[in-house]
Simulated assay, not measured.
Amino acid sequence: MTISLLDNLKIRYRRFRIASSLHRIDTLGALHRAWAYVHATVLPGDYYEFGVYKGNSLINSWLSHQYFRRRLERSGQLPFNRTGTVARFLARTPTFYGFDTFNGMPDNSEGEDTLAPGSFQSSIAHVTRRCAIADLRHPTVRLIPGLFAETKEQIGPHQAAIVHIDCDLYGSTVDALDAIAPRLTQGTVLLFDDYNLFRADKQRGERRALAEFIRKTGLNLEPWFAYGPAAQAFLCHQ
């Protein structure tokens, strides 16, 4: 799959327009707000995404991170010195992990035409080329193919600053949460892009998976803000 000229221009344009994203109410705005929070609180950690598709969220997340990092590094108006926690925060660039089958939706029993097995298919090569347009390259970005239950051992060694779950399905969300659980810390942002899918049915999809995860682990998640047509952000309390 080649990258069209229009797609190339859109990614390059987004690089110059990322600063205007804070008040958007879609996924792009949610990611921008999450990175604003991470830099305001100097929360160290990596970015984890479950459900990459063509890489749009991964790219926008990287661009937002870069924007707020430059502000923290360059602003002379900040009322503190860049020592201690700030210096440690700036000393390390987060790794951006993208987990996906890269073969489309796995087999499932959700019964929705829009989530049929094989839908939302994109290749690692295509995502890699799109990320490179935004200067997001290995080893900063790591794309990990396979079912989440089979790739959980490839979760990175550092805590998660932001976790973006965009995998629609109940089973996939269960596996994603199980994989990321050891990396959640006080203040981690969790973004669920499909939290209110299935008409907000508590017995289906991401809602059911998250409720079961909370009962199982005792994790305290504070609702933060809603975004997009069916999405919800949470803050983690340990």
Rank of each mutant, 00 (worst) to 15 (best):
L221G: 07
L63G: 03
I162F: 02
T95N: 04
A233L: 02
D26I: 05
G51I: 07
G55F: 07
I133G: 01
R15I: 04
M1D: 10
Q66I: 00
G228W: 11
E206K: 05
V141S: 06
A230T: 13
D26A: 09
E150T: 14
G45E: 04
V38D: 01
E212T: 03
Q232C: 08
Y195T: 00
Q159D: 12
T83H: 05
A30L: 12
P79E: 01
R137Y: 01
G84E: 13
G84Q: 10
L9C: 15
P182R: 08
L235Q: 06
G76Y: 00
S21F: 03
G55C: 07
G171M: 09
F120A: 12
H23Q: 14
D113Q: 04
H65Q: 07
Q154N: 13
S4Y: 11
P229L: 03
L90H: 05
A19K: 11
P106K: 14
R70D: 15
T101L: 02
V127G: 06
A231Y: 08
R15S: 06
Y227A: 13
F89H: 14
D46M: 12
G45T: 04
R82M: 07
L221D: 09
V174T: 13
H126V: 14
H126G: 02
R92Y: 11
L9D: 14
T185N: 11
L6T: 10
I155G: 06
T93H: 03
D201R: 03
L169N: 02
C167T: 13
R17I: 13
F234D: 01
N8T: 13
S122E: 15
T114E: 09
R70E: 15
V163N: 04
P157L: 14
L90C: 11
H32R: 03
L169R: 04
G118C: 08
F198V: 01
L177R: 13
R142L: 02
R129C: 08
I124E: 06
T41Y: 07
P139R: 01
Q154T: 05
N60M: 12
L58C: 05
R88T: 09
N60A: 14
I18D: 01
D100P: 08
T2D: 15
S123R: 07
D113W: 08
E150Q: 15
F99Y: 06
A116L: 11
F234W: 10
P79W: 02
P79Q: 00
Y170V: 10
F148I: 06
L90F: 05
T151W: 07
R33M: 03
D178Y: 12
Y195K: 01
L58T: 03
Y47K: 02
H126C: 06
P79N: 03
